[in-house]
Design a binder for these strands. Structure first.
Lengths: 337, 337
DNA sequence: CGCTGGCACTCTCGGGCTTCGACTGCTTAT
DNA sequence: ATAAGCAGTCGAAGCCCGAGAGTGCCAGCG
């Protein structure tokens, strides 16, 4: 629906605007390399593009800036993720060759890597615990009425929950409960463990042990997926792309709410997109922002997602390739462990 | 060295400037309640205060704004931390009555509380692990050559380290090592555990077990205090106090470096201060910021510190009282556990 | 001697005005 | 269809000017 020339012109406007943040006039476009028509012709086409909603004019005698629809077209016909620069891909390679063990540290470092690649804010959402199996469970009495349950998952993640008891429990009882709990849930996933009906196991237990077991299982089931691990880096870089402190403050307020950030990314992925532009993010406060997302795959299963958040006038090609490459490498690195 | 009236005038300038962010003229000061002299007299005194370095003039025909020295005097003679408003202290009370267990969650929530009280960025540095004793240690084999060591500390904190082995180890060996490790370090502090000489325990162990033990002890000693837990909240609030995006970006860059933040707070405390103003923070990028800090005490020992970061024109009295009250309550709450 | 009122001076801020330049849209010629 | 030219629009920048806020200083008063 957009003929060849109009597409070229639109592309030129978008790239120029991304670079300069200034409205782009017909003269600039006409003098650009890919366009071989006069500025008058460009003007006609730009008027058409504006009528179709791809461009907008801040005021009469100014150039044009892309609308969300304009960015969307640009991104879509951009096609594949493109290639990373040599320095960048070198940076990715050395990063992943050096990294090892310690999942949290690694995810946190990954967010730093991604933000340093793109100069936007990077978000890394850790793997869902639901798919990992429980490797070990331990109960540690911290004080007579406070017991800490520590789960080690096959992914290497650790989940801890404190359990408050209504009556004192000595070490013997706690240990007995721990042993019993181990036989019950080790090897299962968190999801299946939390669905164990605590009433089906009353028999054959001493009352004290049963109390602890029931409390432990309740805690497991209780705060489902309450701690997705989210790592956000590079906010200072991203902030520099905006010019109103007000805007910045609103964006930071979003980023402070980890739950919102997670669902933001997942909403985008659920809609089958890898880029959400402006209001497409579904959040009014991010009207001037775009999000680039990719899931990463561990052992054949989609485990989590990573993404960057930047201004709508973002370097989409770079961001897309950086996100794609990092997601890929991250998934592979996590699969080895 | 500052007579009564000059002090009053200085105080009036500072409070007014904190409120309005506008240079304060002699007329305003003269009409303020505490000052009963004419504006001419105020003018004379303000000139003197400027000569002594307490005030500065942006330009000739403008009012005066406080210098760092001016703020310093203001803060010092402010005396005690002052009182919190009723709403605020109510907020603190309900927060700490509701909170329980789960240290990390609690520290993170505390930083949110503190930022919501002050509208500045709040920093909460978790307790040092060095003083806590080891309650339990567990080794979990994730894969043949990867073992995860999980320590539970008496504070309820968890420390995990992954250990990479050069040879495969089966569960039996891992378990044997875990048992031996438990007898070695449970009950000790992290510091003393990490100072165990791994060569003194070769005797009587199977070679495989010894390898794991040595690796585990090495890991313990290795990354000393590498994970102070730092929780930062309310950056979006703080940002709103500034008007240049550039400044904001630099401040955020500081806050992204957790190590820097921790040492920032500790430097201030080490100098015996509870407030650092502008360059007193020791960081050029924070020239327009001030920090208010307080340590918190758990079981009679200084365990960690909390603080807020805001603009130099911060509401010092409110910040001081908020930080003091929260530090106090936090210490008490953590002591119970 | 300290305080005050008065006065002249300085400098920023905002409005109004003009100029400049970057665009556009349209019309006409090829 | 494309190009060229031309008139028109509108913001940005520069300028002037007056208003206002504030200062410093001086002379007089208690």
């Amino acid at each position: 629906m957009l003929d060849e020339r109009k597409a070229t012109i639109l592309r030129a406007v978008v790239t120029e605007y991304i670079e300069t943040a200034q409205p782009v006039g017909s003269g600039h476009v006409a003098s650009s390399a890919e366009v071989n028509v006069s500025s008058a012709t460009v003007r006609n086409d730009m008027a058409a593009l504006e009528a179709e909603g791809y461009l907008a004019q801040p005021h009469t005698s100014a150039g044009r800036i892309p609308t969300e629809k304009g960015y969307r077209f640009f991104v879509d016909q951009l096609g594949g993720p493109g290639k990373l620069g040599v320095n960048e891909s070198q940076q990715v390679r050395t990063f992943f060759s050096r990294t090892h063990g310690e999942m949290e540290q690694m995810l946190s470092d990954t967010s730093r890597l991604l933000s340093s690649l793109t100069h936007y804010a990077a978000v890394v959402v850790g793997p869902q615990h639901e798919v990992a199996t429980i490797k070990s469970v331990q109960l540690v009495g911290l004080s007579p009425r406070l017991v800490l349950a520590v789960l080690v998952l096959s992914s290497g993640a650790i989940e801890k929950h404190s359990i408050e008891l209504s009556a004192d429990a000595d070490d013997l009882i706690v240990n007995a409960a721990a042993v019993r709990l181990s036989t019950l849930i080790v090897g299962q996933t968190l999801a299946s463990a939390s669905s164990i009906d605590s009433h089906s196991l009353d028999l054959g237990e001493s009352a004290d042990v049963a109390i602890i077991l029931r409390a432990a299982l309740a805690v497991l089931g209780g705060e489902h997926r309450h701690d997705d691990q989210v790592f956000i880096g590079g906010t200072s870089d991203m902030v520099a792309s905006f010019d109103a402190v007000r805007t910045v403050s609103e964006i930071l307020r979003i980023l402070e709410q980890q739950l919102v950030v997670v669902s933001l990314l997942e909403d985008v992925l659920d809609r089958g997109l890898s880029v959400a532009i402006g209001r497409e993010t579904g959040n009014e406060a991010l009207a001037d922002c775009s999000i680039v997302v990719a899931p990463y795959v561990v052992d054949g299963e989609t485990a989590g997602s990573i993404g960057v958040l930047g201004p709508t006038r973002m370097h989409y090609d770079q961001a897309l390739s950086a996100v794609a490459v990092v997601a890929n490498r991250l998934g592979r690195t996590l699969s080895e462990g």
